[in-house]
Nucleic acid binder design. Sequence first.
DNA 1: TTGAAAGCGCTAACAT
DNA 2: ATGTTAGCGCTTTCAA
Lengths: 319, 319
Amino acid sequence: MKTIKDVAALAGVSISTASYAINNSPKVSTKTKEKVLLAARELNYYPNGNARNLKKQRTGNIGVFIYEFAGPIFSDVLDGIHKKLQEEGYNIIVSSGKSSLNLLQERQVDAAIIFDDSLENDSLVHFGKLGYPVYVLDRDLKGENMYSSVINNEGLVKALIQRKIDAGYKTFAYLSGPVDSYNNTHRYIGFKNVLQENGIDKHQYFEGDFTIHGGYEVGLKIANSNEKPEFIFCANDESAIGLIHALKSKNVRIPKDVAVAGFDNISLGKYINPTLTTIGVDHYNWGKEVAEAIIAILKHEKPKDISHPDGEFIQRESS
Amino acid sequence: MKTIKDVAALAGVSISTASYAINNSPKVSTKTKEKVLLAARELNYYPNGNARNLKKQRTGNIGVFIYEFAGPIFSDVLDGIHKKLQEEGYNIIVSSGKSSLNLLQERQVDAAIIFDDSLENDSLVHFGKLGYPVYVLDRDLKGENMYSSVINNEGLVKALIQRKIDAGYKTFAYLSGPVDSYNNTHRYIGFKNVLQENGIDKHQYFEGDFTIHGGYEVGLKIANSNEKPEFIFCANDESAIGLIHALKSKNVRIPKDVAVAGFDNISLGKYINPTLTTIGVDHYNWGKEVAEAIIAILKHEKPKDISHPDGEFIQRESS
DNA sequence: TTGAAAGCGCTAACAT
DNA sequence: ATGTTAGCGCTTTCAA
């Protein structure tokens, strides 16, 4: 393996001069710089990142730690983060599970964006205390160097359901995500509260898991039920899509017999029949803004406040 | 920041003893080991990965470099890779674009899995020459420490179309992906060859981009055409789904008026109407096998041959 | 403008 | 079983 020592030797300069040249320091003359770069090219030399990171006590890497690699939300947020980090010259390192914790604790990243319910608060807070900024999505978490950004789940769900109550719907059902998920919990709170505020004192509740398949199973159940709700709010779009598919396969008409809405505005929602009414969050842009904030923090600038990204109601055919 | 020096001091042992204890070496007595681990815990000490990696000349990280974060294929492959790497104690580092190249060249990973058309052969071959194993997916590439795994695109497409010719279909169309993509190129070769072998000397050709939206646009065009093909083979499932949606919206019956098939077997294919005939590759398992092979190589064992992962024909309603 | 040398935090060979 | 120490490859202070 070629090191900077080899480059320096071939160029006939000292190691420090070689280093300056490679890092484009103004301290070195144009002529020696060229000599060094030529030698580096000739040797196919690339600096060893581990050595550089150790010496500089920073890596230029931003960790993005997600719960799993599947899912349209992750994809969009990641693309947004990636776009911004690339513009600013940072490396994006996406990981999951045990790896996330390793990379964090071993300080192979300068900052972390957390999109993973399963990483424990303690580990994150500790990393923050060490001086590394941590941005947590879909979770409330306070502490030194800790930042969080959460969708206004309750308000957005309340607004959607209120419209539908105003439009005359009387009986409602909720199709949940995983019961311990932050988003599901808060969407359900919004759902329950708005019904209560309107004097609707009961609703049906179905347990799902945020997947198409989970929604499909619940859809079959509802299709066979004698007490079909007029309106089913699904905790996310994917389960709504599965639900709609099941209902249609049993000849339940949507929205005539049962109206459906979801949450997330995944792109697929435009390509099903009927098209899906939902609540839209611009995940790509969210990712960009989170990345922008993290970079500002690393530069000791004041980050833009994005603790509560906006969402919007998207009226389509399914309700 | 706490270092191993602090731990050693607090535990009242030398630095090397502390290191041995932390790394669970049998050289150190149980009693001192406990003492050291206690001190480490008390100080909230975690080893600095950059220092360790520099010293050991290996990182325990495997880089997985993908073209973009969107897409069901990437997700499934990544989940498979992640599963296996986690089992074996390696960290997964997923990256894209410029970051991929940086991480590779700076040797912040011990090996790389490449799922990205845009990374140039030269960079990869060079990394291989340096002694790092590189596994390339969906691309043919030879060289020192280079391994590749490509779907049998041609054979699988030929087999599917042959069935449909045997079933009586006479006029065929091809909906492409990006023209310079490896998969699209080889799927189209298979398509053309099997038609030729059966004496079918022309076919319609539509240019797509592997997205739902791209397929949708082409679908609208075909719906308005007077010369609808009996059978449209789409270079991937996503474009097939967009195509079907457009055709249905124009009251073209599938498969009666036009039959459709795709490639990939993404899970969504079961949840559209009609369900999608396709060619299935088990991407999750593919990811697992690639990860397994890379690990074997790192351990200087002989990797299992997975240069041509299997696929299977999946007959559903759309054709 | 260049060079010598210290040291980032760790592992491991060697000495005790 | 434990301690001393060299050195991984780099950056950067300090001296020339």
